[in-house]
Amino acid sequence: MPSLISPAERDYILKGIECNIRADGRQRSDFREITLETSVVSQTSGSARVRIAGGSDVLISVKAEIGPVQVDPETGDGADKGQIICSIECAPSASQQFEGRGADDLNNELTQMMSRFLCSNNTAISSLSPTCSGSGGIDLSKLCIIPGQQCWILFVDALVLDYGGNLMDAIFMGVRAAIYDTKIPKTEVQDLGDGQFEFEVLDDEEDIDFVHGREDMPICITLNKIGTRHIVDATLLEELCTEAKLVVAVNRAGEICGLQKNHDGSIEPSLLLEMIQVGKTMGQALIKNLDAKIKEEAESDLTKRLQGDPARKLGFFAQ
């Protein structure tokens, strides 16, 4: 796959975008087909795999572990909250440019972007930890087990298996699906008196909690500015022609949860505001479709389980 592009191809793609016929026949606001499957990895609390046809393939896993609370020494904040720690890694097998340390910068950029969008305030950054002390809609206080002592820590790990453009959108869709799918065991807390607590994690498979606030998690839409227009869901070649990329994180209610510009170009202010609006409308429509799919899958899994059939997951080689 090329990381180079010829001036003639660049010009062809640019003019094509101007008359709304992209190189593969899509229009500027068309997405490619997306394949989504949840609960693909057995060792996790929740997982999802998202594959964009002919494009990127990402695998998201959410593991819930128990750990000490992180208290901000200055404000005393965090004693009654759980944590979310994100990490994104591009597997060296995903693309030739990722071998060795090549993916380091990209990994870091994506991880920081995800941490920022899943937090709703910046104190995480000033206190240096990569954890989210706010919430991307997720109610962290419900993740606390014993205030001041123990809480649930959700490790959200994304692995990029194939790089074909439009990585951020795929990752966020997967994270939303994986968190929707995450099952956290219930805990029973016993008060031993004197401020001492003991807790026990219930073993019953049916006794689980879903993550509170998972419907309010944001997804993101990446808008690529090429020439004077912008497109969504760019292929690799289109990404090479991009002057500036704007990532808009939107939640179900239409609130913008984050905004970040990438690449070396500049955007005119009125175009920026227009792109934000476009991102917001598209994001809301995308969330609707995505939620419908996730719910459908969750329901079919549930009916299969109640009937005693194990839910058959197709995993990696299915189209």
Partner: peptide, 15 residues
Amino acid sequence: MNVTFHSPVPKAALD
């Protein structure tokens, strides 16, 4: 804009 989500289909199901 339209975006469609699919479940994966095993390759054997295709012709």
